[in-house]
């Protein structure tokens, strides 16, 4: 590995369950700092579950369980005494479907995370909101309508609003769960360009169905697959270029070529 490629998140022997159904088995990999990592694989192979384990969102659903070790900058996020709230502050998340808060204005949506516990002084708040909206490439479209309701925006704008909301709390890692699956191609392109920009400051992990998207935006790629028992596991992890041009595992090759037709 070249210089400057420090480990940000180290996953070691991760298992996850929904009730008695195991969704992930023995996933181990290292996420690099300020790189874009794509998580690919067929539907139901545990991609979403995997990234939800990285900011302790998996345990939010009832009857779920996680086993294994996930370290963020060397700190075990599942160690006893670690509050998931502090982890989620550092590891932000963007969801599959845009989910702005419908009762809040655009400004308040972006400021929602900052207002928790009254962290940010009023004067800074406007600056941070503007910065987050600029980063999400939304500022020019909404700067004159910050008081408007967040649901008044189009689907693509709503998703960028959600990205801005996640960025406003200045996380170190940004998890994105198929952020473009509900969006049109043009908006998708805009968000992909955004990812390139953001990867200078943030570590990004993106789940995607779209092989071309993964090939375009990511530096590293992880291919998850599921066996007969519908439990997902990691097949291959490496540089995106390697995975797409010279996959080591026949299952990876089959999936990628199948997708490219």
């Amino acid at each position: 590995m070249e210089d400057g490629q420090d480990a940000k998140i180290v996953v070691d022997g991760l298992n996850a369950w929904y009730g008695s159904v195991q969704a992930l088995r023995d996933v181990s990999l290292t996420i690099l700092d300020r790189k874009v990592t794509a998580v690919i694989g067929p539907s139901g192979c545990g991609k979403s579950t995997f990234i939800r384990c990285l900011n302790r969102m998996h345990e939010v659903a009832p009857h779920t369980r996680v086993q294994g070790k996930v370290t963020l900058d060397g700190q075990d996020i599942y160690a006893p005494g670690v509050d998931p709230v502090t982890i989620r502050r550092r590891v932000g998340m963007v969801f599959q479907r845009p989910n702005p808060f419908p009762t809040m204005s655009i400004f308040d949506n972006v400021a929602a995370g900052l207002k928790l516990g009254g962290l940010a002084p009023k004067a800074y708040l406007a600056d941070i909101v503007e910065k987050a909206l600029r980063q999400a490439a939304l500022w020019d479209e909404v700067k004159y309508m910050l008081k408007r309701n967040g649901t008044a925006l189009s689907g693509g704008q709503q998703q960028r609003l959600c990205i801005a909301r996640a960025l406003a709390v200045e996380p170190e890692v940004l998890l994105m769960d198929e952020p473009c699956s509900a969006l049109d191609p043009i908006t998708t392109l805009a968000i992909e360009e955004l990812l390139q920009e953001l990867s200078r400051e943030y570590t990004i992990i993106i789940v995607t169905h779209n092989m071309q998207q993964a090939a375009r935006v990511s530096d590293k790629a992880a291919f998850l697959f599921m066996g007969e028992d519908r439990t997902g596991f990691l097949v291959e992890y490496g540089d995106t270029k390697e995975i797409f041009t010279n996959p080591k595992d026949p299952r990876t090759e089959g999936y990628i070529t199948g997708r490219f037709g």
């Binding site: 709230v85 989620r88 550092r90 932000g92 998340m93 969801f95 989910n99 808060f101 995370g113």
Partner: peptide, 28 residues
């Protein structure tokens, strides 16, 4: 919808903050 709770939790909100800032306004 659960997506509202998750959105607030993912911002680093406590359980109560999620209820008071996302759930109750939505259900008002």
């Amino acid at each position: 919808p659960n997506s509202q709770r998750e959105a607030m939790l993912a911002l680093g909100a406590t359980h109560w903050e999620t209820i008071s800032r996302a759930v109750l306004p939505y259900a008002r």
